[in-house]
Design a protein around this nucleic acid. Sequence first.
DNA 1: ATCCTGACTCAAA
DNA 2: TTTTGAGCCAGGA
Length: 119
Amino acid sequence: MDPIEAQNLSPMARIWTIVNMIPHGKVASYGKIADYAGLPGRARYVSRALKQAPEHLKLPWHRVINSQGKISFKLDTQEFRLQQELLRLEDIEVNRGKIKLSEYEWQPDLATLVMAMPF
DNA sequence: ATCCTGACTCAAA
DNA sequence: TTTTGAGCCAGGA
């Protein structure tokens, strides 16, 4: 993503850009995604952005979990099972919906973020 | 404007 | 560690 171009992105598009940067085998919380996108305090907006994301973007939405390191869908739902499966396909361990952030949390370096989101 | 909802968060218990 | 409750912020009715 061209930095100059990124400045003109809508808040939602900026979130999509960040989510798309999460590496295979890693996860990030809604809150952190919002922070990285320059939208602090808007974790709930991230969930909405994922729900509305165009299918063709093929976003790795399953790599986004809550701040407690858990899948946010209820245990007995299809969404939960799908997300859990997609994570496991990336060799991420999931127990009762819980992922070890100490092991799987994406920790982007500042340079990477600034390059994509100059604000 | 008001009320309600939700793929959220933080702190307290 | 898990559960609560208050706080939060957009969208939609």
